[in-house]
Simulated assay, not measured.
Amino acid sequence: MAWAGFRTVHLIHTYRLLSRQATAADRPALGTITGDRDGDPVLLACDPLITPPQLFAIALRTPLPATALQHDAPLRLRAHGKLAEGEPVVAELPDGALLIPAGPAIPADTQILCDLLDSVGALQRKHQPH
């Protein structure tokens, strides 16, 4: 029973987020999908029209659309919502599929980038005792 209540609240929150972001002006964005230390998907995105470029890390809800993982170059996205710290950003793939955020965008500083992009270090950290 508690699971059904949690799931209902989750669906209502997602619906409200998508409704709010659908009315927000969309902007171009470039991004790539990677994983955090636990293997959860994260979108690294930036607005190509703003200089200097600033990367943001956006945790994503799963499951991801299959087309999100079929790329070998930066993704050309449409960002619905403001690509800024603390903002929930819904990213639209070229085929129209949506990447739903699991949390707000956070600036991707050097430490975050190292954690997300250093796959060898991530494997070593994962297998080290705490």
Rank of each mutant, 00 (worst) to 15 (best):
M1E: 10
W3N: 07
W3T: 10
G5V: 09
T8F: 10
V9N: 00
V9Y: 09
L11M: 13
I12Y: 07
I12R: 11
T14F: 00
A22Q: 12
A22L: 11
A25G: 10
A25L: 05
A29T: 07
I33P: 01
I33H: 01
I33Q: 02
D38S: 14
D40Q: 14
V42Y: 03
P48F: 09
I50T: 15
Q54C: 11
L55W: 14
A59L: 04
R61T: 12
T62P: 01
T62H: 04
P65K: 03
P65H: 09
A66Y: 02
T67W: 01
Q70W: 00
D72W: 08
A73H: 13
L75G: 09
R76V: 13
R76C: 05
L77M: 09
R78C: 02
H80G: 00
A84R: 12
G86H: 10
V89R: 03
A91V: 07
L93R: 03
P94C: 00
A97W: 01
L98Y: 08
P101D: 09
A102T: 04
A102M: 01
P104C: 13
A105F: 08
D109C: 03
D109M: 05
T110Y: 05
L113V: 08
C114F: 11
C114E: 14
C114T: 14
D115H: 11
L116S: 08
L116E: 06
L116D: 04
D118V: 10
D118F: 08
D118M: 08
V120A: 15
G121V: 11
Q124N: 07
H127C: 09
